[in-house]
Amino acid sequence: MRLIMIGFGNLGRAFGRSLLEKKEFLLTNYGLTPSVVAAVDEYGAAVDEGGLDVKKLLKTAEKANTVADYPARGKKGRSALEVIEEVEADLVFELTPTNIKNGEPGLTHIKKAMMAGRHVITSNKGPLVVAFRELDRLAKQKGVEFRYSGSVGGAVPVIGLAKKMLAGNMVHAIRGVLNGTTNYILTRMSKEGAPFDVVLREAQELGIAEKDPTLDIEGTDTACKITILANAVLGISAKLKDVKVVGIRRIRPEAIRLAQEAGYAVKLIGVAKRDSLEVGPKLVPVGHPLAVGGTLNAVTFETDLAREVTITGFGAGPRETSSALLGDLIDIHTALGD
């Protein structure tokens, strides 16, 4: 299968490494031989319709910080849109940074790829929270496969569990701890009794929180995931602005202690139901499946037949997320019966 990779930052590179690591595995188990025919970043592109050498691609990206320096086949200034339109390929990975305002540039990349008849895999939340329905319809209309497992839960197969394994169920509600950064901060506050700012700084030093942690701590990232789950699992045409959001900035260690005394932990919980979408700090009974610590994510599906099903795991990190990307790739390969 010929792949185009749009975006070759931490995630793109981690995915490249897992393609190398899993080369034999994919061939033996699925008869799948992925070939990266193009990689694009903000500075340019590397294109070889016969297949780029992923090892060389990784080395180039790490040394020159752009794939455009790829020997002979790299070209500065060549844009993603040009590559999507001009390079013969089966599937496009859209892995550019998330932009929740208008979904760009990811949104245009995905649309262009679908119009060109290419399957699309993304972990980019931006296009999904802005135009989920539109993209879903376009994919169907163009007869291409569209997967976005990595956008929610990172390595935790949240969407796949609901859409595939629980396919015979009516999902009534989805509740989850969907942001590792805020869960880490709340966990540390509860263990150390340390103030929010101190723990946030610690999380930034450890690389768990970003330099600008606003999207995480204000609950926006969780709200994005709730929006995607509402669309993908509950079938609601929801947008990010439909989610009522409260962040964790005002949580104080004393409040966490009061909660602990009554047998509760304070967690940032996202809830998606057919009549309401919300994100906010909640009291979760100690021992409840959602009372996970550290950077863990956990999601509970409340269903008619299976009742409650909870899944837990590591929600973030490039290597973890490449598990979701690779899963999507295999899923499409299998769906196509190649």
């Binding site: 509740r175 409260v246 005002r250 967690k267 700090p281 909640k282 979760v284």
Partner: peptide
């Protein structure tokens, strides 16, 4: 005031 309720009530 920021009010935080229990998950069970959601």
């Amino acid at each position: 005031l920021l009010m935080i309720t229990s998950l069970e009530g959601m």
